[in-house]
Design a protein around this nucleic acid. Structure first.
Lengths: 241, 241
DNA sequence: TCAAAAGTGTTATTTTTACACCCATGG
DNA sequence: CCATGGGTGTAAAAATAACACTTTTGA
């Protein structure tokens, strides 16, 4: 048995983004029970080892379903994390042994991005606790989950740049342009004047104005719009240029 | 032993691009010996199982070094390929058994992009045969290597869009603007008028004009330029917008 | 002299940016 | 009537695109 090739377990971990009513990006975290302190829980990214007949995309889709109860969520593989010591913390090793009933020496993970409307009902078939956590309040997480989350942020930005339509996965079906503006501002380095943004967005034929307008606001009420994916696909407009 | 989690080998495969004198994209392929026909060889992507104490980036860097003799090549991880049947061809299984001296049930691979000046001397410490192959003449390859190459093409295009400077990894140190234009045209959907391209490129302060000009051409000789990475980093210009 | 491509210049068009102005609503 | 943001308009500035014209060289 010549060189020491790894024979390892492979997992997927999912960073699911949502956009809250305070215009903050949030991600979904679940809780794991710790062996030594069964009453204490620690947050982590949702994830799972992949099964013997499963592709990684399928595993991510499964994790997302077990997490939210939603089938066919938008998802994007973004990076394989394989630092040899990413899972060598004693507590993490102990937790894996219990969770998977295997002795796990080394584990590499394939990280996915996903997007979810924050008001969508979360109906987990696997986790007791699934919570939105504002991106700037993420606690210290096990494994390299903090690193994964950090890198997912640059990744979601690239994603929006290359495919503007996915931004609507984070907004309610009916939205006002200010919401879209604030989400875009949170996700892009480019800063646009809100008036010009308004003009540009409302000029797109895939942004459909609705009859409905805001109520109970102490200023002129804004109109609601919806996004028409079919029209978008025909044009495939980028927001800028 | 509850659900059937995979315990698998992990490899990296590298798609190394070069740009030839006929303005074609090429990739580096190596040869493997087949068991049954030891005189016949079959081309494949360069790759390797990763070692027990090795991160995937390090493994890719190692594969690139074993392939070309070059240390610290530009590289970019782009996708994990984990189709459960990607390595279930009998010939592939036999070859893996011989190559790695392990019985390999399933294998997932992490694919990398890399770039190389096509005139750079290839000095492999591992492979007998390393050849440039024009991208439109790639034969049928083992595993899912053809699929990996196809996806690498869309990936290199994205890469150029997001970081224009990496295009110079494919050009000689001294180049004329027509070469750059033809490379850019091969890599981008956007088609620019060559005159306007010329004007734009030569306006960048990180494109340094040299004294030297083309010789032995039956038209006005073009000037050579070089790329200054330091100046580029300060500006971080995108080609378009 | 011709063909071919380099390199420069000019102009039109399109996109982006900045900002003025009026509108509507609750307090 | 004031503050706040919605929504439209206009004009300047910048970027892009189209293309004419001159230059240089080998054949």
């Amino acid at each position: 048995m010549s060189p020491n090739f790894i024979h390892t377990y492979v997992s997927v971990d999912c960073v699911v983004f949502g956009f809250d009513h305070e215009n903050q990006l949030n991600i979904l975290l679940v809780q794991r029970r710790l062996d030594d302190f069964p009453k204490e829980k620690q947050k982590k990214l949702p994830g799972s080892l992949i099964l013997s007949d499963e592709d990684v995309d399928d595993a991510a889709q499964r994790v997302l379903y077990e997490l939210t109860g939603i089938k066919k969520m938008v998802l994007k593989q973004f990076k394989c994390f394989a630092d040899p010591v990413r899972a060598s913390n004693q507590e993490d090793i102990k937790w894996m042994g219990k969770e998977y009933e295997h002795d796990i020496d080394r584990i590499i993970t394939v990280a996915y991005l996903s997007l979810c409307k924050i008001d969508h009902k979360i109906n987990s078939t696997k986790y007791d606790t699934v919570d939105w956590c504002p991106i700037d309040k993420v606690p210290t997480l096990p494994f390299d989950h903090n690193k994964i989350i950090n890198e997912s942020l640059t990744e979601i930005r690239k994603w929006i740049e290359s495919d503007f339509s996915i931004i609507f996965e984070l907004l309610p079906k009916k939205f006002i342009i200010r919401q879209l503006y604030q989400l875009y501002s949170a996700l892009s380095e480019k800063q646009i004047d809100i008036k010009n943004f308004h003009k540009k967005i409302s000029s797109f034929n895939y942004i459909i104005p609705l009859e409905e307008i805001e109520t109970n606001v102490s200023h002129r009420a804004a109109r609601y719009y919806k996004f028409d994916a079919k029209i978008f696909k025909k044009n495939n407009t980028k927001l800028i240029k």
